[in-house]
Design a protein around this nucleic acid. Structure first.
Length: 465
RNA sequence: GUCCCCAUCGUCUAGUGGCCCAGGACACCGCCCUUUCACGGCGGCGACGCGGGUUCGACUCCCGCUGGGGACGCCA
């Protein structure tokens, strides 16, 4: 495969906080696109902002990607390690006249911006230092600006949106190097994407307006731009921009909520991408089916409810070994066959790993938490005698076979002339503390005679008051 | 304010001029299954933002409006 046809995508987060849903989705799209076409996925940390970048953020982003299984073929590169490269290109632009030094102060700039804003124009730099040929030894702090085109148009060819045209008069001469000598974002992105031979830049919609500016730099540098795909943003459930208040949680928090990585990937990909009517995808399906042509152009809202549903779907289909592995120590020390039984009982009822572990505790641990309402309703003085009689009967049952338990149950019911319906809920509350559980005989067989009888008798005790 | 993007059920979406008085999924509501809850099955509720064109025919094409989002930093 030649250089031109090799697909190379990248994820380029700035380490100024944790990885949230929005960032995660562009990462996922980029990663899947590379997987889909047998390309490479590159991770690049955009840490040129000294003030806000933190090592802790980098680690969090790395952790989140590792949890999701977003493996990268190259990197993580760090822009702070690439200073010489940027400076060599800045020098090149300065020498060729595509960039110039500017000594305007921040105060000047702010003032100008405000004035333009008031007059109804787009606030931009007016280019007052352009053409002055200010030398490096002016004796004043200076920035370097790109000398962009003053007229004409710049066209962005976007894979999702077609040709988007910007009037060059809308673009000002942006700063590519700060007073302190550090290069700026728009410049580094161009240099890096070109240097790393990125073929497809898949990024958020919020960067669409940056793209013509970057195109100006590509042109000045004589470099060939990659293909662009600007994916729409994810909004909060109220349609507002995602903020900490609604939905912009760290990806890692979904892990802590008991969401499966594959389910997270499934939901996030499906949010803004579709493949006919299919809702549930395995990881392999995503890797083989994802493509940019079916990516939606409109913004979509994050819906925790549907993510949880997607998670439940994955949970049910997951094989037990994998489930135990991902659950950490929740099922530690339980023999294989017993574990299988437990998971088969609990899986169809669980929505998250947290649910699953919590429901398992009822049957594994000695102590029991009682739901007050259920107790009042079902553990009454009427049911108390039934429960203790039943417990006595069950002494002879073989708890190794749930059919045996059922037989004893039925014999007792017949004698009393009662329906199972009457006895089922009181027994369930006695055994589990609540009114919701898997089949009665299933949980009894699982818990064993001692625990069952103890709990039923305790239930009777509570019934008597 | 200026520029840019977007617009189908509450939400995610299918739909690329006739197959659509619009299909699927989540949520919600019934019913069935059933010892409870879930799973599963069946059914219901529910949308093409508005106004102009183009066309024999518009959810689909064009224009305007409205609404939503984004960008305008020595942040990324």
């Amino acid at each position: 495969m030649s250089d031109q046809t090799q697909i190379r995508t990248r994820f380029a987060p700035s380490p100024t906080g944790y990885l949230h849903i929005g960032g995660a989705r562009t990462a996922v799209f980029s990663w899947l696109y590379a997987k889909r076409y047998g390309g490479k996925f590159i991770l690049r940390v955009e840490d040129t902002d000294n003030e806000r970048s933190t090592e802790d953020s980098i680690q969090q982003i790395l952790d989140a990607m590792a949890w999701l299984g977003l493996d990268y073929d190259e990197g993580p590169f760090r822009q702070t390690d690439r200073w010489e490269i940027y400076h060599s290109f800045i020098k090149k632009l300065l020498d060729s006249g595509h960039a110039y030094r500017c000594v305007c102060t921040r105060e000047d700039l702010d003032e100008k911006r405000e004035l333009m804003q008031k007059s109804g124009a787009k606030p931009m730099y007016d280019g007052s230092c352009r053409g002055k040929d200010i030398p490096a030894d002016v004796g004043k702090p200076y920035v370097v600006r790109i000398a962009g085109p003053k007229d004409g148009k710049t066209e962005v060819e976007d894979l999702l949106r077609g040709t988007v045209v910007f009037d060059n008069s809308e673009l000002d001469d942006m700063i590519i190097m700060r007073t302190d000598g550090s290069p700026t974002y728009n410049f580094c992105v161009v240099v890096d994407d070109a240097d790393m031979k990125i073929s497809h830049v898949i990024r958020g919609d919020d960067h669409l307006a940056n793209t013509p500016r970057q195109l100006v730099i590509y042109k000045a540098l004589g470099l060939k731009p990659p293909k662009f795909a600007h994916v729409s943003m994810i909004l909060g459930s109220d349609g507002k921009r995602l903020s900490k208040r609604h939905g912009a949680l760290s990806v890692l928090e979904y892990r802590d909520m008991g969401i499966l990585p594959d389910a997270f990937l499934n939901y996030l990909t499906r949010l803004g991408w579709s493949h006919g009517d299919q809702e549930v995808f395995t990881l392999d399906e995503l890797k083989s089916k994802f493509d940019l042509d079916a990516v939606s152009k409109s913004a979509s809202r994050f819906d925790l409810e549907k993510m949880t549903w997607t998670n439940a779907e994955h949970l049910r289909k997951m094989d037990n070994k994998a489930l135990v592995k991902i659950s950490g120590n929740a099922f530690e020390g339980i023999p294989g066959e017993r574990l299988e039984t437990l998971l088969e009982m609990l899986k169809p009822r669980a929505r998250t790993l947290v649910d699953l572990a919590a429901s398992a505790r009822i049957y594994l641990e000695d102590g029991l938490e009682y739901d007050e309402k259920s107790v009042t309703r079902f553990l009454t003085s009427d049911t108390a005698s039934l429960l203790s009689e039943l417990a006595d009967r069950l002494e002879i049952a073989n708890f190794g076979r749930k059919e045996d338990i059922e037989t004893v149950f039925n014999e007792y019911l017949e004698e009393k002339g009662l329906k199972l319906k009457i006895l089922a809920q009181p027994v369930r509350v006695a055994l589990t503390g609540g009114t919701v559980s898997p089949g009665l005989f299933d949980i009894m067989a699982f818990m064993g005679k001692d625990k069952c009888l103890a709990r039923i008798r305790e239930g009777a005790r509570r019934g008597r008051g």
